[in-house]
Write a protein that binds this DNA or RNA. Structure first.
Lengths: 340, 340
DNA sequence: CTTGAAAATGTTACCGATAAAAATTACAAT
DNA sequence: ATTGTAATTTTTATCGGTAACATTTTCAAG
């Protein structure tokens, strides 16, 4: 079929081993020999067999990435950061898994990918009750990096943003605009959702606004859920004057429901999201949001994972990278100016 | 490290081979034996070593997908279709490659992935002059499926839409709205770009409008390029009353340039794109576009590739799947109604 | 010339599975 | 009991690399 080390060895009257060394830049081979080997290797377009190599070295140069929603530009941008870093220098390829915000799907994907990759980058959808799945994997030596979200009880490298701060920034901005009755569309059980809610509460209390649990409504992380949640709220009545949605898709879904009901976004109800979704600035009402660097997030995650894979010394410290979020004011919050 | 066939064999006093057969549902093993093997296998959580298996069978159950732009929702939706099909039934995982509309990047990715996958799904960015790269691969047995775009001179399974029709639908719609001076923002050398231009020309000629090459301006397939192209056009003056942009990102970039220059999209200049980008309906001026099913595209591509991989009879016919496009009228074209 | 250490190359074994061929067992028919 | 065939299992070889150890070559120093 295709050319193997043995073919090259035969042609040059060398042993497979010497050829292998020459190709892997092992200093133990004579410079002249290496050149002869490389010359032939190029001529016949030798391609090492990754499977054979992986079998003996137990290294595949594949990284698994498991995200909940490929269609959300947020994760696409993270993927882009990861694959950019993984390609540069170290030569890893990316295998993707899609959990679709579904717990058992996530675990299936993880189980499928951990055996054929050198390590996984995961944005965990699972609740803390499933933490031991990951804890056991770490004990058995699987390399993991969490991204976007954390998981209580699992100690591994991770890259996140300060989500309490995200909630605070969004809510305080609304407070500063004069709102008193501020709602929140709550996400799922992910750490991001919980922390953003926490930030929302902190901002209220810091500004002497009583927390009213009727103003926090269950939503989810997807656009369709934001739509449904706001539609329900409109039917129920007793609307707030402003809303902080757990993320941009939820915010956009909510805005859609408002428009359909004849409510003016930014005027009747102010809306702030988070994540800085692609095209958020070009929507019919440009979306005010909280932003942090997705590409940096992806790059950092790839860096931490590759570090951890290539660490020959036991395991390095479980580094945590925390990115700081900033507010991006557009029009959905009712502030009538556009960001430069 | 982890459990192997040999471990199970030893425990049961069987040979590796029998255990292997039991696990692979080979009818050659005794039913009772199989059950004993499976019981142990489950108890010790046996996971076959994919590398070893791939080495001997030459099958990895990995599919490579190479797209030009992961951040474009169009390709994200295609990916979703592919991975949905690949997971269901047959159990393939997806390795992604990103060409970024860059010719040598694409070839690098293809070279890197072909050896570690069972086949590739590619949206080719390369021009016809590079066709022999793919032709040679096919000759050597690499399984390929083209998606979204074709490549002249390469005969392999493919899934595309009728892009001449796309250009015709968009342009005729503008003609029907009364426009005579219709511009086109031309893409790159991809088949999609060429065919859409061809459709544009056909629509003009069918309606007795002379083709004016000054109305076709070089653009590209990315948002930034649409922006730049339209900005330049505005500077140069002699604007058309309507424009068909090669795809939605280009259209959106162009609309941005128009807004910045104080031109009203849909009023001063009508705009039609193609591809039906996510959130195209929620933009400040909802985008009129031509649409076809991305998920079907992805699913069909995965189906064709897996068929071709698993075909034991030589190679089946090189099936071509053609999806038909439909016009989606929103507001950027100046027609003052929104699609149901 | 030896000698000995360093440099270069070679040998053997193995990673964990499967293919192909060989061997054993089971069992019905004579 | 004997035979023959089908059913089941084992043996051996192999996929294409690399690790670990063994051997040969080179060449300066005595």
């Amino acid at each position: 079929m295709s050319v193997t080390l043995a073919d090259i060895a035969r042609e040059l009257g060398l042993s497979k081993m010497t050829v292998s060394r020459a190709i892997n830049n092992d200093p133990l081979v004579n410079e002249k020999t290496r050149e002869r080997v490389l010359a032939v290797s190029r001529r016949v377009n030798y391609q090492p067999n990754h499977f054979a190599r992986a079998l003996v070295t137990n290294r595949s140069f594949l990284i698994g990435v498991i995200v909940p929603d490929l269609m959300h530009s947020y994760f696409a941008e993270i993927m882009h950061g990861i694959s950019g870093y993984a390609r540069g220098g170290s030569n890893y390829q990316i295998v993707i898994g899609n959990s679709e915000e579904n717990i058992s799907r996530e675990i299936d994907e993880v189980e499928a990918l951990r055996w054929r990759t050198d390590g996984l980058i995961i944005a965990p959808t699972v609740p803390a009750s499933k933490a031991d799945v990951y804890r056991k994997m770490l004990e058995r030596g699987t390399k993991l990096v969490f991204i976007d979200r954390t998981l209580e009880g699992v100690d591994c490298p991770m890259v996140t943003t300060d989500n309490v701060e995200v909630g605070r920034l969004a809510t305080e901005h609304l407070i500063n605009l004069g709102h008193k009755k501020i709602g929140h569309l709550r996400g799922t059980s992910t750490s991001t959702s919980r922390e953003r809610l926490e930030g929302y509460k902190q901002a209220l209390s810091k500004n002497d606004i009583a927390f009213d649990k009727k103003l926090v409504r269950d939503c989810g992380l997807m656009e369709s859920e934001g739509y449904r949640a706001m539609r329900l709220w409109i039917e129920d009545g007793d609307l707030p004057t402003a809303t902080f949605a757990v993320n941009d898709p939820a915010a956009i879904g909510a805005m859609q429901a408002m428009s359909e009901a004849g409510l003016k976004v930014g005027k009747d109800i102010a809306v702030v999201g988070s994540g800085n979704i692609h095209y958020g600035d070009m929507l019919s009402v440009p979306l005010t949001t909280v932003s942090w660097s997705r590409s940096e997030m992806g790059q950092a995650a790839a860096r931490l994972l590759i570090q951890s894979i290539e660490a020959n010394n036991g395991d390095a410290a479980n580094q945590k990278v925390l990115l700081s979020p900033t507010l991006i004011v557009r029009e959905s919050c009712g502030a009538n100016f556009v960001n430069p």
